[in-house]
Structure formats: C-alpha cells, structure tokens
C-alpha cells in the first residue's frame, strides 16, 4: 500500500492505496464521494469525469497514485458556497438536462471544463465536446440546451420544454 495525499474539493484527502487503485475508487470508496460514477470499463461513458489540476479527466482511467499531490475537483464541490446550485447545475435543472442522474456528474464536470476554455460554444462545439460522455436518458437535447444556457446564450429558439 502507498499513501497518497491530494486536495479534493479544497480539502486535504489522504489514504493508503494499492498500485491498481483507480482515482474513481479512491474517491468513492476511500473518501465516500460517491457522486463520481463508474458506467463502463473502456473509458468511454464519462460518468466518472472529474477535474485534476483543472483539467477534465476520467477518474476510472487514472491511477490514484498518479493523482498524489494533485488538486482534484468532483461534483460534490461544484455548488456555490451557500449550497445553492452553480450556474451549470442550475441550467441543467432549469432545462431538464438530466433524468436518471447517473451520467449527470460527468456531464456537469465536462460542461464546466468546456465553458472554462470556450465561454460561448456553438451547438456543434458542445455536442463535439461531449463525445466522451454518454447519456441514455435525455437524447442529449436538454443537456446541450442547458450547457448553452449556462454559457449565457439565449436558448429560447430551441424547441420548448
């Protein structure tokens, strides 16, 4: 076992891990941060997307040891300081961008990474950026709409509801 220490959502998190322990397992099992989900084993579904040193990564495809010393942000740390939903989260609720909620943490984390680099993405840019995030419930319509709304764009022309 190796001790790892990282900053997760602004707080120090440490624990003993095996070489094979994935970052997703460390977050879920060790830290109890079960908002990071695991939906596949081939690094495609994106339910496990978190930010490591500010960049979106798939926590199921990174060894926990590799995150030693890193700054990690997960869905649990996304809300505003007063506990209210942040702009992206709020847009997902306002535009019904989630149904079962399982892919949602990864979607929100990917959306946050996108908007950081590209504050006003086009529809095509949003869709392309979500290539590594699979949703089976929403047909993506309201996810794309929510992300565009979160970027401050007027989405009223996109089919209602």
């Amino acid at each position: 076992m190796t001790q790892v220490k990282m900053t997760v959502n602004g707080k120090t998190a440490s624990g003993d891990v095996e070489g094979r322990t994935l970052l997703a397992q460390f977050l879920r099992d060790d830290q109890g941060l079960t908002g990071t989900h695991v939906g596949c084993d081939t690094s495609q579904c994106g339910a496990c997307v978190v930010h490591v040193n500010g960049q979106a990564v798939k926590a199921c495809t990174m060894l926990a040891i590799e995150a030693d010393g890193a700054t990690v942000d997960t869905i649990e740390g996304q809300a505003n300081a007063d506990g209210s939903l942040n702009v992206i989260q709020q847009a997902f609720q306002d535009h019904h961008g989630l149904q079962c909620g399982f892919c949602t943490p990864g979607m929100v984390m990917s959306a946050a990474a996108l908007l950081k680099d590209n504050p006003k993405p086009t529809e095509a840019e949003v869709r392309h950026y979500l290539d590594g995030n699979i949703c089976r419930c929403t047909g993506y319509h309201n996810i794309v709409k929510a992300i565009m709304a979160a970027s401050g764009q007027d989405v009223s022309a996109i089919a209602a509801e």
């Binding site: 079960t34 989260q89 949602t104 943490p105």
Partner: peptide, 20 residues
C-alpha cells in the same frame, strides 16, 4: 412544467444509487 425536485441531489453528487 415544474422543475424536478430530484435534480438537486443528482446535480450535487448526493444521489444514492445501489453501488453507493
């Protein structure tokens, strides 16, 4: 078109799925 109340827990990582 009432906004969904369940969304809040899902959007903040507080859903409770069986694997949790």
């Amino acid at each position: 078109s009432t906004k969904r109340r369940e969304d809040v827990r899902f959007l903040t990582g507080n859903g409770r799925y069986t694997d949790d």
